[in-house]
Nucleic acid binder design. Structure first.
Lengths: 110, 110
DNA sequence: AAAATACTTAAGTTTTTACTTGACTATCCG
DNA sequence: CGGATAGTCAAGTAAAAACTTAAGTATTTT
């Protein structure tokens, strides 16, 4: 918990909220505007904008405003960051199990 | 945001906290007891136990008590759940981009 | 130019989280 | 047995998060 990874913190915090994950699910189908995004969600537009800000700051979502409409899209590198963290944990865990297996398979070598 | 996935919610909520992720990082190195886990963290043992409860309820961690010591270990299926969700989003996103690419490559077929 | 649309921003409220303290139980060790 | 160790539980507090309302700005549309 030292001052290491500043990004992974934001990404996982962002993904920790179910509404924000719903937004990500919607965005994975393709880019849409803020109000289209708000449509199916039963919260105010202002709340959606706030979630969007968090998603953008974490690098999970990118937005661009043209005229009066802001279009939002997934930023795949943000997701990769989270995916990588998870994979790392699993890899370390599994490698450890492998070594344990080796030890059990050839107990005379120790 | 209907009553669909009950597990993914817990898993991502659990991973949303940096202390809990630190616990996961520690556990990926191998199973350890609650107080060993608490050692490097600058919070009380009681707080660690609470985090552990959340991790256990989400299926990310499994524990077993022998005598007076509870040993905690990673439950890889919990991590897979989160990994899968992320991969799904990326896959949908990338498949969409592929289709777009096809459209641009062969515009006369439409 | 007026009305409507699509956000944006700030401030305040409510709910949820993380954490602590303190008391308690169970197990192990000398 | 008595004390130390390992964890549990309940209650309370404080800070963070999610959400709302209300007022404002910039862009279309009519």
């Amino acid at each position: 918990m030292s001052g290491r990874k500043p990004d992974i913190d934001r990404v996982f915090h962002a993904l920790g909220d179910p509404t924000r994950r719903a937004i990500m699910e919607r965005l994975s189908q393709g880019p849409i505007s803020v109000s289209q995004l708000a449509g199916p969600l039963e919260i105010t537009l202002a709340a959606v904008v706030q979630h969007l800000q968090i998603l953008e700051e974490s690098g999970l979502v990118g937005t661009e405003k043209v005229g009066r409409v802001r279009t939002c899209r997934i930023e795949p590198t943000g997701l990769s960051l989270a995916e990588q963290w998870i994979r790392d944990r699993r890899t370390i865990w599994e490698r450890r199990l492998d070594k344990l297996g080796d030890l059990l398979a050839e107990p005379d070598e120790n």
